[in-house]
Design a protein around this nucleic acid. Structure first.
Lengths: 346, 346
DNA sequence: CTGAAAGCGCTTACAG
DNA sequence: CTGAAAGCGCTTACAG
């Protein structure tokens, strides 16, 4: 049987209320009493029961993170791990625990969220993905539970989100290639129904248009956030009659596939084809050649998501809102060897 | 204010006890009553308060996973993510929630564990690393809390662990190279104080000894579980007068460094040097060339760790023990291009 | 098969 | 500054 507040109270010759007050550093407690009670707690090895505290305080000091279903694991595990590291680091710093949840099916996912939030096991949630018409988002939104979306929601512009300005990021990536003298630039995209694919494609188009460069439909290939996509895209793109001299690739993992495909086809990077991609996962500087990539600050995204979620939990009821609904984490282009080839001027 | 058991009881015209019994599928409840109560629960949108339940049942249906400190993040994030995926999948299936915790310093780590276990917030813990003289292990062990170690403990042979037979795995890897005709085989190791480095080195030595092959000290290089280590090792090893024709490398990430180093030095894999490494992370089949690797079933390791932990939690008190203390997950060699070069017979 | 009562370990107005 | 009491939402012997 664990030591309770009563045991401490009895041994210290005070009431349970007093022990509780010492525990929460209540101001109106004499230094003497506090000292004595603390000594007894130490002596008895007292540890407050978190569940009991939660029950009465109606707050859990926990948040949950919802992993996407395996089927939708479009990004690399590296991406999620980095996100989670950021979330856990910030949450722990703020005194919050992080609960991980991953539903098998969409139904299970919703059931899990309902159990955790309705069951008052966590104070809020972070969603690591943004789908269209997500029932989980609807659930959280309708019940008024605090939550943060890593990504962007088109349906609910007022919910808390942390995101990259993907349009601008793609614009920057494309502009970099244009500055290097490239005029025929292709785009290897992800699943067309994902907001991130759309945004990055749009940024690419804008940069091309701003420089009055042609975008041919066959230069744009859609696929998954998987190496295979990049791999497969190469045999198509490199066989085009007037093929691009550079590519903007939607994700580093896809770029790995691109590199492998080019290697097999005996093309050289960056001489035959320049590449810039997104996310700057740790491996992108280790490939042969190292890949130029837009660093979107994954850890920072997670860290911020946790921060604004906890803020909104703690300000619940007060109505105060410190973070804007949409939080954009700055990105920056890291230039490496894969784009280090200037096209000779004609 | 959320709907409680009392609200349901009142509306259904029964006592709270009955509602509670319906909730836990108590056998001695009439079908009629159960039906009615369930209907009311549905109607009112009742969700049991998990904290209240935990408080009285003295069990949380949660486990925590302790991430290694950033400083000790020797393995790749990919490795941990895969482990966590396995843990979360099994735990959720068994009706358990998973709490993630990562201490900044060793002190914070211990404080977190103490808070979670002593504070009865979780029923048990999984440690993702095995250090020597780990105070966290000592703490859990002395308090008799259920926990599982992913790795091997030399100090406490009786604690629950899930592990790879690393000696055998390294033996197999080395034997594979020997079978291909290699006689001068080197070993790129990890930090010498880690059990996994020691075990794999031992397996290598045994395989070499069994085949009566010489092991020269300069063929063995120690480092970190980082790409840099492999990278740096190459300029040393490839400049040896009588250099190896094959290498056993302690980890796939290190192999990536090895490949990069060899590429820069203009050596070809597998023609100039064959490579076999460990862990078979998803990327090892995507490098140029794809790396032969010992698949240690990372997801499976996590899955099993969760399984035996939850088993031991549920059998606590009964004294029953279904899993042996040490659980070994089988490994297997995946041969790829990096070792697909047979040394010509002399 | 069902209910009244006690209790899990804590907090917090209300008094004093 | 401190204590007695009520209560957070649930479970579970004990009766009947």
């Amino acid at each position: 049987m664990a030591v309770t507040i009563k045991d401490v109270a009895k041994k210290a010759g005070v009431s349970p209320s007093t022990v509780s007050r010492v525990l929460s550093d209540h101001p109106r407690i004499s230094t003497e009493t506090a000292r004595k009670v603390k000594a007894v707690m130490e002596e008895l090895g007292y540890h407050p029961n978190i569940m009991a505290k939660s029950l009465v305080s109606r707050t859990t000091n926990s948040i949950c993170v919802l992993l996407p279903k395996p089927a939708e694991e479009l990004f690399s595990n590296l991406f999620f791990m980095e996100l989670i590291r950021g979330i856990v680091a910030q949450a722990n710093r703020a005194g919050y625990d992080v609960l991980l949840s991953s539903g098998g099916s969409e139904k299970e996912e919703l059931a899990a969220v309902s159990r955790l939030l309705n069951g008052r096991r966590v104070d809020g949630a972070i969603l690591l993905y943004s789908r269209k018409d997500d029932p989980v988002v609807d659930f959280l939104y309708q019940h008024g539970y605090p939550f943060t979306l890593i990504g962007r929601s088109e349906e609910h512009p007022d919910i808390l989100t942390v995101d990259t300005d993907n349009v601008q990021a793609a614009y920057d990536a494309t502009k970099h290639l244009i500055t290097m003298g490239h005029e025929r630039i292709g785009f290897v995209s992800g699943p067309p129904n994902l907001v991130v694919s759309q945004d990055r494609l749009l940024g690419y188009r804008r940069a091309m248009a701003d420089s009055e460069l042609e975008v041919r439909p066959e230069w744009i290939v859609e696929g998954e956030f998987l190496q295979e996509s990049g791999y497969r895209a190469m045999s198509f793109i490199m066989n085009l009659p007037n093929r691009p001299t550079a590519l903007v690739v939607v994700d580093d993992m896809v770029s790995f596939g691109v590199l492998r495909g080019l290697h097999e086809l005996k093309f050289k990077v960056p001489e035959d084809l320049c590449i810039v991609s997104f996310n700057n996962i740790p491996l992108s500087e280790l490939s042969t050649p190292p890949i130029s990539s837009i660093d979107i600050g994954i850890y920072h995204l997670g860290y911020t998501a946790s921060q604004i979620l906890i803020q909104s939990i703690q300000n619940e009821g007060t109505g105060a809102r410190f973070a804007p609904a949409r939080n954009v984490i700055p990105h920056r282009l890291i230039v490496r060897e894969s784009s280090a080839f200037a096209v000779p001027r004609k």
